[in-house]
């Protein structure tokens, strides 16, 4: 086996060249190139993390503005409901008030008209009484020629009219 039988003659050369090559690999690649590659990988990972965080932030902002929008919409809707209710009450109240005033006016006019009718009726009745009294006095005078006291006739007529 040359690995064992040659040890005596090759160990120095193996050690010498391995030391040189391994040092080249360690310092030239392991210490010089590898940290740069590690930094590239780390930078990329950091950037990906940052981008993800930014996207998360943007998503949160979007969600918040969406929520704000909904809240605004809701508050506007409730304000509108309140305003509608207020307007409705106001309208109802004014309608009621105008109804009330017109009712009152109507009632007043009815009362006036009723009073007028009453007075006309009374006047008409009085006229009927007077006319009846005149007629009775004339009839009596014509038929009997007796001049009856006008006051007596009036009392009699009133009594007869009251009888119906």
């Amino acid at each position: 086996m040359p690995q064992l039988s040659q040890i005596g003659e090759i160990y120095a050369s193996q050690l010498f060249w391995l030391a040189i090559v391994f040092a080249l690999i360690y310092f030239g690649i392991g210490k010089a190139m590898v940290p740069k590659i590690e930094k590239t990988v780390d930078d990329r990972n950091a950037r990906i993390q940052g981008d993800i965080a930014a996207a998360e932030g943007a998503r949160a902002t979007a969600l918040a503005s969406e929520r704000d929008y909904q809240a605004g919409l809701d508050s506007a809707r409730s304000t509108a409901t309140v305003a509608i209710a207020a307007a409705k009450t106001r309208v109802t109240a004014s309608t009621e008030a105008s109804l009330k005033t017109s009712d009152a006016a109507m009632a007043a006019r009815i009362a006036t008209a009723t009073a007028q009718i009453e007075s006309s009726k009374t006047a008409a009745l009085a006229e009927i009484e007077t006319a009846t009294t005149d007629a009775v006095a004339q009839i009596v005078a014509k038929l009997s020629g007796v001049a009856v006291d006008r006051a007596t006739i009036a009392t009699r007529v009133k009594a007869e009219l009251a009888h119906g």
């Binding site: 090759i10 120095a12 050369s13 193996q14 010498f16 060249w17």
Partner: peptide
């Protein structure tokens, strides 16, 4: 005094 020849191994 050491043999440090550039061998096929090196």
């Amino acid at each position: 005094g050491y043999d440090v020849s550039f061998t096929n191994s090196a």
